[in-house]
Computed example of a mutant assay.
Amino acid sequence: MSETALKSGAGPAPGPRNLITDVPGLAVGQAEDLGARTGVTVILPEARAVCAVDVRGGGPGTRETDALAPENLVEAVDAVVLSGGSVWGLAAADGAVAWLGARGRGFRLADRPGVPPSPVVPAAILFDLANGGDKAWGEDPPYRELGRRACAAAGADFDLGTAGAGYGAAAGGLKGGTGSASILSADGAVGALVCVNSWGSVTAPDGRTFWAAPFEIDGEFGGLPLDGLRAGPGQWGPSKAPPPAGARQNTTIACVATDVALTPAQARRLAVMAQDGLARAIRPVHAPFDGDVVFALSTARHPLIGGDAALARLGALAADTLARAVARGVFEATAWPDAPPGEGPPAWRDRRG
């Protein structure tokens, strides 16, 4: 929807790409290692952006999230990195830091010759180590290089599904992936990007109807009727195997963004509200063996008008948009190209019947 249409009262609608990059001032880059069945996604603002984080999962893996607390020194970041690879994947942020630092980007504690800026790059990882890819990388895991490559590839358009940090993911009993969505409203633009590697199910017990179906716009993840959207207590749909087999192999990591200028505390509230999008799209979620993390970015292209009421509306939109992004990531996912028939989780599009 154009800004003209918004001003005419037509109501919120997805942006032209239906991606987080519909938020002005953002680019996204991705890189994969097909042999290792893993990848990296980088959200790259044009200028340093206010950032906050909300961590709900019981087993998170993160970098520099403490620096994002509203009371701390650094109020803005240079990129956000989402990566596969569990603990090894945190090195993807090293690649992003190197790429940004070589271009003179970062936080300047001492602005004088010979003192380089320090890029601030928070990161979160998911577990994709047990998906059958070649992880025999010894002392040279691929993630630093993947982080650098993802930065170099950043732009307005990027692939969904089996791509980036969602390349090696599994969403419950289905192939996981990278999803994104956007919404443009009179309060501002909101976008979401998510890498879905959840323990819980993204579909109802029928295995086809996405839990996020009530929030779908224009058939963006299949346009199925809501008839299958029902479940009794304890009926989740196709989740991963129960613990211990299915434990500690999960995590959904995400970033929401807006072009509205927010303080660090306001961005933190946006992240908190956006977490409900995961709860609308994944059942169960935030389990002891998930590491669910949601970042929130503000590119500050225009002021927040309307105070807390406007912030509440943006948070509600962020939650709905993140729920849509989860479903889109699984809807667009395909089987790994090197996987023989029957290996790995089935893709939703191969099971829909």
Score class of each variant (00 low, 15 high):
Gly35Arg: 12
Gly176Thr: 14
Lys7His: 12
Ala171His: 03
Ser201Thr: 04
Leu6Pro: 01
Asp276Leu: 14
Ala102Thr: 06
Ala181Asn: 04
Thr4Val: 11
Asn131Gln: 07
Gly95Asp: 05
Lys175Trp: 05
Val196Asn: 08
Gly104Lys: 12
Gly306Ser: 06
Asp78Ser: 01
Pro346Gly: 00
Tyr143Ser: 05
Ile183Trp: 09
Cys195Ile: 08
Phe331Ala: 13
Arg351Thr: 14
Ala92Pro: 00
Gly306Ile: 05
Thr334Gln: 12
Ala323Asp: 10
Thr203Asp: 04
Ile20Asp: 02
Val80Ser: 00
Arg208Thr: 11
Arg103Met: 04
Leu126Asp: 00
Ile43Trp: 02
Ser201Asn: 03
Gly306Asn: 03
Ser118Phe: 09
Arg351Lys: 10
Gly179Ile: 13
Gly61Ile: 01
Ser185Lys: 03
Gly58Asp: 07
Gln249Lys: 15
Ala245Asp: 12
Ala5Gln: 13
Leu270His: 02
Leu297Ser: 01
Gly207Ser: 11
Arg112Tyr: 06
Gly61Cys: 07
Pro233Gln: 11
Lys175Thr: 03
Leu26Arg: 01
Lys135Met: 12
Trp137Met: 07
Asp320Leu: 10
Leu297Glu: 00
Asp140Ile: 11
Val293Ala: 08
Ile282Leu: 13
Lys7Cys: 13
Asp94Thr: 15
Leu146Cys: 08
Glu216His: 03
Ala91Ile: 06
Gly161Pro: 08
Lys135Arg: 15
Gly191Thr: 11
Pro24Asn: 10
Ala271Tyr: 04
Ala49Asp: 00
Arg148Tyr: 05
Glu139Gly: 14
Ala124Asp: 03
Ser239Pro: 08
Ala5Cys: 09
